[in-house]
Design a protein around this nucleic acid. Structure first.
Length: 581
RNA sequence: CGGGGUGUAGCGCAGUUGGUUUAGCGCGCAGCGUUUGGGACGCUGAGGCCGGAGGUUCAAAUCCUCUCACCCCGACCA
């Protein structure tokens, strides 16, 4: 390709709209152009890279027997109602009405459509297992698109769906895909970390994410340096440890004038935060929910949401808490403190229940004794609060946020945290979709069962962006050669010099014939401009021709990723380049 | 949806307080000339409904009202 003809110009100044490295560089390199919020046009350079990534994905999936197909973007809205996932996706689902007022959705993913398709093409266990995939544009009306291609509303995505007859089969498919994913990222030269993940709106049980670690990443990863444990912070668990003071003692009120926060309680009564209980209030699907957790921990809202099975969750305002007759800053589940009454804990729970308030406790409240908690009166706290003697909860579960510095649940090591971009996510879906949509098969004995499903996604555009996040310097992009739009940047200086022009044209023709993937900077520009554009575009190998190199019958060759350059004799071009590519 | 911010040429910006006549600057773009191994220089030139609508006024990029778009933080979300 001749640079003078390439559609898309490089830009010297950083566009004001971008503040993510990959976003800035793609705009400056003339790779993308924003069409609307979270909607982009992909210019030839970007499109070439996307196709390279797509092809690596295709090759690796085809190798294990996956079959590519093409599904519709327009999907009947009823299909989403049938699966119930119209609720899970909510506002993120783009919908529209056709001329007959029939509601359609722009596919945010294709599980429903493919399950319908499989339903009509699979009847027997003999048709299974099956690995079907597609690489298509998907649509999600994200609340806030951001970071260029990191989070967009219209995006290129590979989705593979597995269909199996039993759990063991699903396990095999899952494992197979896990290996495929590792191979794909390895071939793209993009090191990723596999972490345990929350399955979110997609649903299902087991799921793993593949994270490309980079400082600007929008996800937090918690991992243990001493064992293999790694998880998304949404899902990560920690060892909370036992705290507190031995045998349960009798409840007692203590005066705590003006003391509200955990920090204040801790200072005032001279106890560590881990010896206190923190009350937090949420509105879950419109209902006030009381969450109780040990004072040294914070609530992980994703875990809480999963426990509640709720769709809409937010913190309650102080007004909402007060309106429910609760004293903010002194709330606890202990309303009735009659210490002689062995049924007081049950009575407390019944009191809350009668007020229509559900109590969710983090399991940390069971990991210790004699806590300080609110007295449900201003300026009063309780000491020696114990579970389950003094209070109980509707649900006790792990709803705590694991943080860097916490102990690893598996090995006791010290957890660390880092940031990453999610570039792949695999899920064991199970049968909830096939049951709802009636996708069944008959086994050997002629009995009908729902097909067991898995799904496996890679955001191709996001992978492109993440690749740049991970591979750039102050001058520009540094493409891994496996996904680079071109391999060679042919860079003649002083093109008006006939000898330079002659050699440049000859090399361009030679490289083209050899299918090396060459971008020929045939512009009459100063060396500075050419070198800077070469660095910005990040093509792995720069081949410079100038009167100076031709004096030595050579060209200069430099890798984008390295500082040093060296001369290769013209008559040994082939061998010289062979070594470098 | 809450909070903050920005809309003036392809890109980056000034001008808005304090009303004007031809709306500026840099980059980029076109032509000519001089240059040339890390974003050269000179001259000439093209390019604008100042986000949109309405209003005030002799006069609006500038003041008022309403709207739209985009960015950032949060909520939310692969």
């Amino acid at each position: 390709m001749r640079l003078s003809k390439l559609f898309g110009k490089t830009q010297r100044e950083i566009p004001a709209e971008a503040d993510t490295a990959s976003h800035q560089l793609m705009l400056r390199a003339g790779m993308i152009r924003q069409v609307a919020a979270g909607v982009y046009a992909y210019l030839p350079l970007a499109w070439r890279v996307l196709k390279k990534i797509e092809n690596i994905i295709r090759e690796e999936i085809d190798r294990v027997g996956g079959q590519e197909l093409m599904l519709s973007t327009l999907q009947p809205f009823e299909l989403w109602q049938k699966s119930g996932r119209d609720q899970a996706f909510g506002q993120s689902l783009f919908t529209l009405l056709d001329r007959r007022e029939r509601k359609l959705a722009l596919g945010p993913t294709h599980e429903e459509v493919i399950t319908e398709l499989v339903k009509y093409n699979v009847q027997s266990y003999r048709d299974l297992p099956l690995l079907l995939y597609q690489i298509q544009t998907k649509f999600r009306d994200e609340p806030r698109p951001r970071g260029g291609l990191i989070r967009v509303r219209e995006f290129d995505m590979m989705d593979l769906y597995s269909f199996d007859a039993d759990e063991a089969g699903l396990g095999e498919s899952y494992h197979k895909m896990l290996e495929v994913y590792r191979n794909i990222y390895a071939r793209c030269d993009l090191p990723t970390v596999m972490v345990e993940a929350d399955s979110g709106a997609i649903g299902g049980k087991e799921s793993h994410e593949f994270m490309l670690t980079t400082e600007g990443g929008e996800d937090e990863i918690v991992h243990c340096p001493d064992c293999t444990y790694a998880a998304n912070a949404d899902k990560a668990e920690n060892n909370k440890g036992m705290v507190g003071g031995g045998e349960p003692l009798p409840l007692a009120e203590v005066s705590t004038p003006g003391v509200v926060s955990i920090e204040e309680v801790s200072n005032f009564l001279k106890v560590p935060p881990s010896h206190t209980l923190k009350a937090v209030f949420y509105i879950a699907d419109g209902r006030l929910t009381f969450v109780i957790i040990r004072g040294d921990l914070d609530v992980n809202e994703v875990k809480l949401k999963n426990i509640l099975g709720g769709i809409d969750l937010r913190m309650a305002t102080e007004a909402e808490v007060t309106a429910a007759g609760i004293v903010p800053g002194a709330a606890s589940p202990v309303l009735k403190i009659d210490i002689g009454d062995p049924t007081r804990a049950k009575a407390n729970l019944a009191l809350w229940c009668s007020r229509g308030i559900k109590i969710i406790a983090d399991d940390s409240v069971t990991l210790g004794t004699n806590f300080i908690a609110g007295g449900n009166k201003p300026g009063i706290h309780l000491k020696n609060v114990n579970y389950p003697g003094d209070f109980m909860a509707d649900v006790v579960a792990d709803i705590a946020r694991a943080c860097a510095g916490d102990k690893c649940l598996r090995c006791g090591g010290k957890l660390q945290s880092s940031r990453g971009v999610e570039v792949g996510h695999i899920f064991k879906l199970g049968t909830f979709l096939s049951e709802k949509l009636g996708a069944t098969f008959v086994d050997q004995s002629g009995v009908s069962y729902p097909i067991i499903m898995g799904c496996y996604g890679i955001g191709v555009g996001r992978l492109l962006a993440a690749a740049i996040e991970q591979n750039h310097d102050s001058k520009g992009i540094i493409w891994p050669s496996s996904i680079a739009p071109y391999q060679i940047y042919l860079c003649p200086l002083y093109l008006e010099n006939p000898r330079v022009a002659e050699i440049a044209e000859k090399l361009y023709a030679d490289f083209t014939v050899q299918h090396l993937g060459v971008l020929f900077d045939d512009r009459i520009e100063s060396p500075g401009v050419k070198f800077n554009d070469a660095d910005l575009l990040g093509i792995p190998l720069r081949v410079t021709i100038s009167p100076r190199t031709l004096e030595k019958n050579s060209v200069e060759v430099k890798r984008r990723s390295e500082k040093a350059s060296h001369l290769i004799p013209l008559n040994d071009m082939f061998n010289g380049l062979e070594e470098l590519i």
